[in-house]
């Protein structure tokens, strides 16, 4: 194979410019003095100050954080179990259906998932609100966690578990003392992935929410429909910053863990 050549450099430069220029422009114009988002009027942080005074956004942010925290925690627990079931439980009855229910939510259009879960809540007269959004988010997030755990388990050394079991460890203790500590980085990145998925979701939350439970993406969406404003840029910048911080933290945790095991 030819070495890394000019074509590759070109593809990477163009590709990453395409991926990053819109986000960089978005961040840049959140510090714009002017209300016009396309004309640079000097550096200013006034839109962030304005944001802090916007009660609607603060309420929505609080709802979003609550939902994201609870849903990602429950989803990580359920998804970790599901991932282990997929890799360590052999062929049980109904396995195909189970793996179908794990993979389908990851590709299924969000409008279908949102509509279906909403219609069930209505038919069962469950009041919609923070609780129903959380349930919906747990359901799709746990599938992502399951896949993260599943791919971690595919390179897992089974002989350690066998040794523990041979030495009289119960299956539960083997999981708690051996398996869980080893796969912990995957569990943490599953949690972070669930958290950002929940933080990000507009469509499913719009269906599953009720009056008084507006999430941040729903709030941003209703603002975007009225036009582009520096305030939206400011709130977007904060979210992008948080996610970047999370991803970098996760990769550092992953790297440290790798070094320890080597």
């Amino acid at each position: 194979m030819k070495k890394f050549g000019n074509f590759n450099i070109f593809a990477l430069v163009v590709g990453f410019s395409f991926l990053y220029i819109p986000i960089i422009l978005l961040i840049l114009f959140s510090f714009n003095e002017s209300r016009l988002v396309t004309v640079w009027g000097g550096f200013s942080t006034k839109w962030y100050v304005e944001l802090m005074q916007n009660q609607g956004i603060k309420d929505a942010a609080w709802v979003t954080i609550k939902v994201a925290f609870i849903s990602s925690t429950v989803a990580t627990a359920l998804g970790t179990i599901a991932g282990l079931v997929m890799t360590r439980f052999g062929n049980f009855r109904g396995r195909t259906l189970f793996s179908g229910m794990i993979y389908a939510p990851m590709v299924m259009p969000e409008v279908i998932i949102g509509l279906s879960i909403l219609l069930m809540f209505v038919a069962l007269s469950i009041n919609r609100g923070v609780f129903t959004i959380t349930l919906a988010h747990i359901t799709f997030s746990m599938c992502y966690v399951a896949v993260v755990i599943q791919s971690r388990m595919s390179s897992y050394d089974d002989s350690i578990n066998e040794a523990a079991l041979d030495l009289g460890c119960t299956p539960f203790h083997t999981f708690r003392l051996i398996t869980l500590p080893i796969i912990m980085p995957a569990v943490v990145s599953g949690w972070l992935l669930s958290f950002t998925l929940s933080l990000d979701d507009l469509v499913i939350a719009s269906f599953a929410s009720g009056p008084g439970s507006t999430t941040l993406p729903m709030k941003i969406y209703s603002m975007v429909r009225l036009g582009v404003t520096p305030e939206i840029n400011a709130v977007s910048t904060i979210l992008v910053g948080l996610v970047t911080l999370g991803v970098i933290t996760a990769s550092i945790i992953g790297r440290k863990q790798k070094q320890q095991t080597i």
Partner: peptide, 18 residues
């Protein structure tokens, strides 16, 4: 991976201004 984790809505919104 970074844009993959960044909000879908925000990334679509970024294009409106462009």
């Amino acid at each position: 991976i970074l844009p993959f984790w960044t909000s879908f809505l925000i990334r679509v919104y970024a294009w409106i201004g462009i």
